[in-house]
Design a protein around this nucleic acid. Structure first.
Length: 265
DNA sequence: AGGTCATCCTGGAAGC
DNA sequence: TGCTTCCAGGATGACC
């Protein structure tokens, strides 16, 4: 599902296909996408303006119009963005459509409607209001910063990694990957972990983000050693070829190898 | 404060 | 075949 790498790939897609095309009008097929915001203000901020800039923080994607207003997009579980050139290729489940003057359109599709769109003046204030934690791929975030964010927390690792207020961008699948690469059981408590272990988690996080972005999140193209390639119902551990365990941790479906991810502490 | 659960939603898979 | 049930997942908020 869309986590940091997936959102980053879509951001790059927008840069390549959606910028500098003046918007003719905005069609909001499903107003609930706006979470109570006025459709009128939305249209007004976009009409006649092209999109000119993008920004991503965790799973939030921001697109700036010439009016200087930003659209904040969250893909939820099933949200996606596509630029289409002719109506003949219009996908299903379109919730929002920006019609360009040149005949093309940027469409936001979302079968399950967990996605969100907001009109934002100040991106930083928007993120602060939601208390979102730092994006680990942005400047200045290193091992020490990572350790600092996790230090002093008493919960289980999986739950902490999924908490967007701690670190923004890690979702269920990538949290499982990080724990697998570090040989940590999902129920491991964060308190009492050695600094070295935090460092290993940071390295695993950066490695999987980088690898996943490199293959444009087509997990099948990842090296075999990544759990993401094997994270399915009858998946086998890429290290020992024994069946993976499926359990619940942090109230989410969790895959792990009972051999390499031992419970500690 | 942390953990669990319900909630939003609906396509698709599984079960009967 | 066709119906019903369940599940998935991101984020938030209620509750213990």
């Amino acid at each position: 599902m869309p986590e940091l790498p997936e959102v980053e790939i879509r951001r790059r897609y927008l840069v390549a296909h959606a910028l500098h095309r003046p918007i003719l009008r905005t069609e909001i097929a499903d107003p609930t996408l706006l979470n109570g915001a006025s459709a009128r203000s939305f249209r007004k901020a976009l009409a006649g303006h092209a999109l000119v800039d993008t920004f991503r923080h965790g799973k939030w994607l921001f697109v700036q119009a010439e009016s200087l207003r930003w659209i904040a997009l969250h893909l939820g579980m099933t949200g996606n963005l596509r630029v289409i050139e002719t109506a003949a290729t219009m996908p299903r489940y379109v919730r929002l459509r920006l019609r360009f003057r040149d005949g093309g359109s940027l469409v936001f599709t979302d079968p399950r409607k967990f996605g969100e769109a907001h009109l934002v003046e100040n991106v930083t204030a928007f993120l602060q209001a939601r208390k979102w934690g730092p994006d680990p791929t942005l400047d200045g975030f290193d091992r020490d910063a990572f350790r600092e964010r996790l230090r002093g927390r008493s919960g289980v690792l999986k739950g902490i990694l999924l908490n967007q207020q701690v670190i923004a961008g890690i979702g269920n699948l990538y949290a499982d990957e990080m724990l697998f690469q570090c040989g940590l059981h999902p129920d491991t408590r964060a308190s009492g972990l050695k600094p070295r272990t935090f460092g290993a988690l940071y390295d695993a996080m950066m490695e999987i983000f980088e690898a996943s972005i490199a293959v444009e999140t087509r997990y099948k193209e990842l090296p075999n050693r990544f759990l993401l390639r094997h994270r399915n119902y009858d998946g086998l551990c890429p290290k020992c070829r024994r069946p993976l365990n499926i359990t619940t941790a942090g109230s989410r479906t969790t895959y792990y190898c009972p051999t390499h991810q031992r419970r500690r502490g």
